[in-house]
Amino acid sequence: MTDTVLTKEKRSRADVIQRLAAFGALLLLIVAFSIASPYFFTFDNIVGILIATAVNGLLAIGVTFIIITGGIDLSVGTVMTLSSVMAAVFVKRWGLPIPLGILAAVLTGTIAGFLNGVMISRMKLPPFIATLGMLNVARGLSLVITQLSPIYFPLESGWNNIAMGSVLGAIIPGFDIPNGVLIMFAAAAVAGLILSKTVIGRYTFAIGSNEEAARLSGVNVAIWKMAIYALGGIFVGLGGVVIAARLNSAQPALGLGYELDAIAAAVIGGVSLSGGEGTILGTIIGAFIISTLTNGLRILSVPQEWQIVVTGLIIILSVYLDIIRRRAKA
């Protein structure tokens, strides 16, 4: 018995090290950039990083659920855009109140996710193809609905405050953290609870770990998969609300490439692309690593095209480290 206990301790220690590794990398980046530039560690810049992370963080939360089931969602970027367009249609075109606009965006994301789930678990399409199709459908619909031009929210509507206002600043003067950031952290907390403490979270891991075993144990895998894709869509819809509020507009041409940043954040944060493993905390740290890196390199006047190269290298490195860790475990 003692030997199994020992291996367990050894292994969970390896897991902890992995989790600390992502967090440590983030701290290291912050320290390095702070030393390299006096402008980095300022309140305004940190707020800038936070708000820059909010949208990608929300999309990454959504895609984390999907990836843990062993699937993938390429449509999160353009579905986010479609969600923001629907919010604009409700609030600007139809003059409906803001809460209904938010509801429209969240529902759009949920429905798109649900349809992805139907295609994957009922029509048996591979997730890559189903969500690639959804990527284009959502992108096209955004362009059709807006007739190719952005829809701006009336300034007096207060839509902008959803992301850029600061409830915190009103309570604690000077501590002007934008609401968009709070939305992301709140969503992360809820998502973390769902993933670790509820049945749908449990089945997310079970399906990703061994779908056939889950099915043979009486788990209705088809239905739960649809539910999980829909659940991921809720966070994508929220991402649509935040980006529309940040830009105070729905930009129909936006969204392509966002899915890759979201997937990258999840993967850097330790979500396994083969399914069964991952945490919301890790994903959020992954999202912060990407935005901190982008922000820091910009402050150091590294050209934007090189920032993209570095992001790519970080993805390769983090997945390679994960593979090494697995090999050591096996």
Binding site: R202, F205, A206, S209, E212, A213, A214, G218
Partner: peptide, 18 residues
């Protein structure tokens, strides 16, 4: 074996009956 390796022993035993 028909187990979900990422889950714990207890989680495997009661999967679907939590």
């Amino acid at each position: 074996l028909n187990l979900m390796n990422h889950l714990t022993a207890a989680q495997n035993i009661f999967i679907g009956r939590e």
